[in-house]
């Protein structure tokens, strides 16, 4: 054991389902004879998460994120390989280990739909056997951080999506778990609610040392919260490393936007050819606005060249958005292979 709180070794999950032919005749046929299909949701995953980490788990729809989370928390067993939590097979966790775990399923409420959130929290207190003083202290703090004091006594089903999600998150943290999985907790939320939740998670990770595993389709969630990133594609890990590392290793591009002095646009003639020396690509939105895409390592020299050739009124340099990086990883399997952690 490496001392990891959570580990997967060659974890594979296969779902068995039968093919459903369209039309009534097909369904009648299916009643007597069925063709079974095997869907590989996880294709032999190797991962380790240490205490205190904040890991982002991303991937396109059907990449296996939710299956991985469910296997790691012990909701479903892996078909082969191992998924361990707290040094124990995740599917056979005992109550002692379950007390150290929290889960938020963005699309599936874990609180009681027809009860005010406060009543659900009391019920969770009994289930997790949380001492009263500890419970009150945490609840007060979380309610303040997420700004939901006014909604505690309202039936969950009468709350907005954002308010409900905040309640779900409070419910998952009330017993002071060491590891918390958050499966798309910001799905469908507005900007303010997303920011509040992000701040909350970062603070809990920093101050209480909780290990957080966050899956999200929103790259801003990942950028603002996680240090480590795991990218899944077709049930396999295609990148596992620091976010900074991802940027350093594949992000090599910067977008340099230039606004020229009026009347000097003719000085940009022949610029495209001269930029080839820096591996740069030129695009021109209008005669006075140019954008140059250039590898990050050449950006400095390229800017010096541009300033020497052109009469620049304004200049900005932008990093490539995370979405573009991820797209690049998916589009280039060889790149993905080179990124995977040894």
């Amino acid at each position: 054991m490496s001392g990891a709180l959570l580990s997967c070794r060659s974890a594979r999950k296969v779902f068995r389902t039968h093919e459903r032919e369209p039309g009534l005749r097909g369904f009648l046929r299916g009643l007597f004879k069925r063709k079974w299909l095997e869907v590989e949701a996880l294709a032999g995953i190797d991962l380790e998460f240490a205490a205190g980490e904040f890991v982002g788990l991303i991937g396109s729809n059907g990449a296996g994120k939710t299956t991985l989370v469910k296997s790691m928390v012990g909701i479903i067993p892996v078909s082969s390989g191992r998924a361990e939590l707290f040094g124990r097979d995740a599917f056979h966790l005992r109550d002692e280990e379950k007390r150290r775990l929290g889960v938020v399923m963005g699309q599936r409420s874990q609180l009681w739909w027809d009860l005010p959130a406060l009543d659900s929290f009391e019920l969770l207190r009994a289930i997790y056997d949380v001492p009263r003083a500890e419970f009150d202290q945490r609840l007060a703090r979380y309610v303040e951080l997420l700004d939901v004091a006014d909604q505690l006594k309202i039936q969950l089903r009468h709350l907005s999506l954002g308010q409900r999600m905040k309640m779900e998150i409070i419910g998952a943290f009330l017993h002071g778990p060491e590891v918390v999985f958050l499966d798309e907790p910001t799905i469908g939320l507005d900007l303010i609610a997303r920011e509040t939740i992000r701040k909350f998670l970062v603070e809990l990770n920093r101050e209480e040392g909780a290990t957080l595993v966050l899956t999200s389709h929103d790259m801003e969630d990942i950028e603002h919260t996680c240090r480590r990133l795991v990218i899944l594609d077709q049930g396999a890990v295609v990148f596992d490393g620091e976010l900074v590392e991802l940027r350093q290793r594949i992000v090599g591009e910067r977008a340099i936007e230039l606004h020229l002095e009026p009347g000097t646009e003719d000085r940009a003639e022949g610029l495209a050819e001269s930029l080839q020396a820096f591996e740069g690509r030129l695009s021109r939105e209008n005669p006075l606005t140019l954008t140059v895409q250039v590898p990050a390592s050449r950006a400095h020299d390229c800017i010096a060249h541009l300033l020497s050739v052109l009469a620049v009124r304004d200049l900005s340099v932008e990093r490539q958005p995370l979405e573009d990086l991820i797209r690049q990883v998916y589009a280039t399997p060889s790149l993905a292979a080179g990124l995977a952690r040894p």
Binding site: A51, R99, S120, L123, D129, E178
Partner: peptide
């Protein structure tokens, strides 16, 4: 980090009763 917390048999019974009491209350 607290690590695994072992609960005695009496503690378990107390927890089960507390859960039942909470179910009763939310009911």
């Amino acid at each position: 980090m607290s690590g695994a917390r072992h609960i005695s048999l009496l503690g378990k019974c107390r927890q089960r009763l507390a859960i039942l009491r909470q179910f009763l209350r939310v009911g």
